[in-house]
Amino acid sequence: MYEIVAFYLFSVLTIGLFLVTVMSKNVLYAMTALASGMVLISGFFFILGADFLGVVQLIVYVGAVMALYSFAMMFFDATRDIKEKNTNAGLVFLLGGLSALVLVLMFAAPIHSDAIQALYPMHEGAGNAQDVGIVLFTKYLVPFEVAAVMLLVAMIAGIILAGKKMDQSLTEDTSADDEIMTLKDAK
């Protein structure tokens, strides 16, 4: 009983929050709704008994959205609305509708539940974390390793892009000071 209540509560809240994320013109509202929506999604994992995945969802997205916030902080004034440029509403409508349709079909597919069978059922006595580990290192070993290599590549690329003059401290960098002073004098 309380699972049903919790499910509908989380569903309504999640869908509502993600609607705010898409519709809102205010960066702060959009980002906050995104973060809380991501946190609430972990509620579904908890209802399904997948505690470990729920907590991973929580930790990963709390960190990821926090990084997004720092970009929002750099680019926008968080207390004002943003003027959006919506060119070609028809195309947006078409693409959005199509992807929504595909998603609905994908997630409605398990209605034929007799065609589905669990290839890797839960192990008796093994906890959540152990089960995830077993599947990761047997069935999904190759995708897991590929994902690890991709993350490594992304990390190295990020370091190379951001890493120019890494040996100098920006705080102690005085090379731009003269320029700033001359600009001030010119005023």
Partner: peptide, 22 residues
């Protein structure tokens, strides 16, 4: 999975200062 849950929740707590400041 108590430890992960506690650390994750405490991490979520930093949204307070972040949102307050912004």
């Amino acid at each position: 999975i108590g430890i992960l849950f506690v650390l994750g929740m405490m991490a979520a707590g930093l949204y307070g200062p972040l949102l307050a400041g912004m």
